[in-house]
Design a protein around this nucleic acid. Sequence first.
DNA 1: CGGAATCCTTGTAGATACTG
DNA 2: CAGTATCTACAAGGATTCCG
Lengths: 133, 133
Amino acid sequence: MSQRNTGVTVQAVNAQACPVREVLDRVAGKWSVQILVAAAQGPIRFTELERGIEGISRRMLTLTLRNLERDGLVTRTVHATVPPKVEYELTPVALELHQTLQRLTDWAENNRVYIAEARATYDAEHQPELLDA
Amino acid sequence: MSQRNTGVTVQAVNAQACPVREVLDRVAGKWSVQILVAAAQGPIRFTELERGIEGISRRMLTLTLRNLERDGLVTRTVHATVPPKVEYELTPVALELHQTLQRLTDWAENNRVYIAEARATYDAEHQPELLDA
DNA sequence: CGGAATCCTTGTAGATACTG
DNA sequence: CAGTATCTACAAGGATTCCG
């Protein structure tokens, strides 16, 4: 195995990479995923998200929700009640995405130890330079 | 369906969200994924990556590779030949990640049209304010 | 309650030039 | 060839304040 790369194959996979970037650009934001996860169980209110997401600012919550709404991943429903009430709900497409993200979660959980150790090892080998300076 | 969220469930999913963020923080970078994809076929040299990835700067290629190496996702092999030769290869763990990312690609391809339309619709409804000003 | 507007800090990335 | 170093810029994000 481990066939060498040819220029051709590299170009080929680059073509494949574009759609990936589309998803990632949409999901890579610091909060998008957490909103997707938090809203996966059903409609959820603005304030519930704000309290549930830990560390998110009102501003970023609004911005991220707007982007998700723009991409057709969440629906925004305004209830014209006396205390305003707005509910956000994932669209079917977003639910699919949520399922897919679960695989990534699994990968992360399965390999978090490996990565942590790799990182520690790497740092141990490369940081010392700072100590004997 | 669409059961209302309870505070409890939101907290629960938040716990789940953490590992996801770990992956994303590692993959979200503008170039990480493209490197993973480009290197998925086998060992690849620095310059091959630089030419194959279109738009990446030498600096970012180096930085991203270092991070991937640090996380144990790529191995760096230096061949002490006259013209220096360094090859990068994905580790098994990275190959797993690459597989998982494929699912995201599939999702992106299946829904890119939907998202593009949603975006166009949204913009059509919210941008006009700029026109009749 | 659910935002929008403003200001400020930081990380991410580009460009360029130099080295082993 | 495969980096490193420096300097810059821009956009993401945090904090705060005001509004319907």
